[in-house]
Every structure is written in structure tokens, then in C-alpha cells.
């Protein structure tokens, strides 16, 4: 019998419901924080498709975030498009660029993949940093938010926008959950676990990896478009390589290989940096130490570890890799 109420889905539902409940009585900063976390959660989930499910460790994922953000910014501010079509264009643009980049990076493995994704994302950073037309290092202000008039809502209200981002994040979760539980998703997991066996079974490994690279790029592009709308602004900093590093940390902190893990990681890291930066000027040092500690000592991440204990408590005899 198929179990539709997996721990992961139930956890996701609880997170979404509690976020929506919290929006109502969170103040302005709380609502802004929720929107920010929801957007980061989308971004982190997209990276987890590569890192956790497929075993492709990208250190250049921020490029797609930036492409989605710049596409939305350029199309709305310079070309006068409406926001909805600029969002779609941002997603498609990120997908196209992911297809081009992916076509020659998915063959590579391990450290080469890491370094080349890093260098290529810096190429986009360098381009937008120098391009005066799109604001150069000052960035591009004045990006509008999606028009929610047809629902009778005003997206410039932080509460409404927070709810909107949470709903989009929830939809992304459902979509990616469907993809990863489809035969295609199973293929990717199998490639991650034993690439040589899959190759000898005749699976077109490169094609599958390219496909998920494109999906991950498109979802990151969506996150970028949302981020541009949230801040009303985009600058090259959105695609600086440390952004890729931090989202990678989020995935690790939450636990790789589960979509909810990425969401938990995004929330924990964002809230931590928010709290720490209000306490000390040197908060980055403590974040760095926290990252090192998590990577060295908590291999399964927060959600991964909790899920492991949960499954163990429910059925002590079951094999212990159920967390994934």
C-alpha cells in the first residue's frame, strides 16, 4: 500500500500552515522574514535536487537566481512587460542558460563540477557588475511586484506578499515532490547511489543529469524572480559565489536528499544570521564556525537527524536509512 502521508509531506504541511498562521500576527519584520525564508526555501529546494538527489555539488547555483532576478528586472523596468510574463520569462531564461551550461558540465564529476560551476557563475557576476545599462554594481531599482488585483489583493502589503511567497513555495514543494517520486526521480536517486550500475543498465546518465540541472535552474530562476519582486531591486551581489555557498550550507544544515530538509535549513540559517547580526558586528565568524561544526559533526542535518530518530522510535527493527 502506498503511503501518501509520509513524514516529509506532513512536516511540509505543518511548516506551511504555521507560516500562514504566523503571518497574521507577525509584525512588519516578521512578515518580511517569512517572505525571505520562503524565497530562500524555493532556492534551497532547487539546489537540493542537484546535491541531495543527484549528487551534483554545484557551487554556482546563485547564477540562476541572479538570471531569474535580472530577467524580471530588465523586462519590467526596461521593456515594460507585466510582472507575470516577466516571471515566466525569468524561469525560461534560467532554464535555457542551465541547458547550455549543463550540456558541458554534467559530464564532469566531483571537484571539477564544483570549480567549473563556481567559475561560470562568477562570469555572470562579472558581466552584470560591469554592465552600466543594467546598473552595474549599483544594481537595478524599481522592480514591481506581481499584480494580485484579480484576487482583490495588494501585493505591496508585506503580509499579503508573505502569504503569496509561502503559497508559491508550497506549490514548488508539491511539484518537486511529484517529480522526485516519479520514475524520473527514481532514476536520479539510482544514479546517485550507483552511477556505474545505472550506466551498465543502459540508462542515459548524461541526459538525466542535464534534465534535472535544467529543472533546478528553472526553480532557482523562479526564486530569483520572487526575490527581485520582494526587494524591488536586484544587484550583482545576488549571484556572487558566496550566495551559492550559503544556499549549499542551508541544504546541508537541513539535511540533503529531502525537500523539507532544504526548507528547514533555509529557515534556520536565515533566522540565525538575522539574530546573530543584531547581536554582534562579527556575526559572520560565528556563522562560519556553525557551518564548520554542522558539516563536521552532523552529517544528516537537522531534519535528517530528527527523521532518523522518529523512524527509529516508530519501528526499532526497520532499516535505518528511512530518513530519506
Amino acid at each position: 500500500m502506498k503511503n501518501y502521508f509520509t513524514l516529509e509531506r506532513v512536516t511540509a504541511l505543518v511548516i506551511v500552515v504555521s507560516c500562514l498562521g504566523f503571518v497574521d500576527f507577525a509584525g512588519y519584520y516578521g512578515q518580511e522574514l517569512i517572505a525571505e525564508i520562503a524565497i530562500l526555501a524555493i532556492f534551497a529546494m532547487s539546489l537540493d535536487l542537484l546535491v541531495g538527489y543527484t549528487g551534483l555539488v554545484s557551487l554556482g547555483h546563485a547564477a540562476f537566481l541572479g538570471i531569474g532576478a535580472y530577467a524580471t528586472g530588465i523586462l519590467t523596468v526596461h521593456m515594460g512587460w507585466n510582472v507575470a510574463s516577466s516571471m515566466a520569462a525569468g524561469v525560461i531564461m534560467a532554464g535555457l542558460i542551465a541547458a547550455i551550461i549543463g550540456a558541458f558540465v554534467v559530464r564532469l564529476g566531483g571537484i571539477f563540477f564544483i570549480m567549473i560551476t563556481l567559475a561560470l557563475s562568477q562570469m555572470f557576476y562579472a558581466y552584470f557588475l560591469k554592465n552600466r545599462e543594467f546598473g552595474g554594481d549599483d544594481g537595478m531599482p524599481g522592480i514591481p511586484r506581481l499584480d494580485l488585483e484579480m484576487f482583490g489583493l495588494d501585493a505591496s502589503d508585506p503580509a499579503i506578499f508573505a502569504v503569496f511567497t509561502v503559497i508559491v513555495a508550497a506549490l514548488v514543494f508539491v511539484l518537486l515532490d511529484l517529480i522526485m517520486n516519479s520514475p524520473f526521480g527514481r532514476y536520479l536517486l539510482a544514479i546517485h547511489q550507483n552511477e556505474n550500475r545505472m550506466r551498465s543498465l543502459g540508462a542515459p546518465i548524461g541526459l538525466y543529469k542535464l534534465a534535472i540541472f535544467i529543472v533546478a535552474g528553472m526553480v532557482a530562476g523562479l526564486a530569483g524572480s520572487m526575490q527581485a519582486q520582494h526587494m524591488g531591486f536586484v544587484s550583482p551581489d545576488a549571484m556572487f559565489w558566496t550566495v551559492s555557498g550559503i544556499v549549499l550550507i542551508m541544504v546541508i544544515v537541513g539535511g540533503t536528499g529531502t525537500l523539507v530538509g532544504a526548507v528547514v535549513g533555509a529557515a534556520v540559517v536565515r533566522m540565525m544570521s538575522h539574530e546573530l547580526s543584531s547581536l554582534t558586528e562579527y556575526w559572520m565568524m560565528y556563522m562560519g564556525l556553525f557551518f564548520i561544526g554542522i558539516v563536521l559533526f552532523a552529517g544528516d542535518g537537522i531534519y535528517g537527524t530528527l527523521a532518523k530518530y522518529w523512524h527509529r522510535a516508530r519501528d526499532p527493527k526497520a532499516p535505518q536509512d528511512l530518513a530519506k
Binding site: G110, I249, V295
Partner: peptide, 23 residues
Amino acid sequence: APPLKQVLVTFGLIFVGLDAVRM
């Protein structure tokens, strides 16, 4: 360790080093 861990730990060190210098 797998490259992922090496990259992330040394990435954490960058932040520590940066703030140590600023301090």
C-alpha cells in the same frame, strides 16, 4: 571526506578568517 565537505568547511573558514581580520 567527499569534496562537498571539504568545500563547505573551507568555505566556513573564509567567513571566520574575514571577521578575524576585521576584528
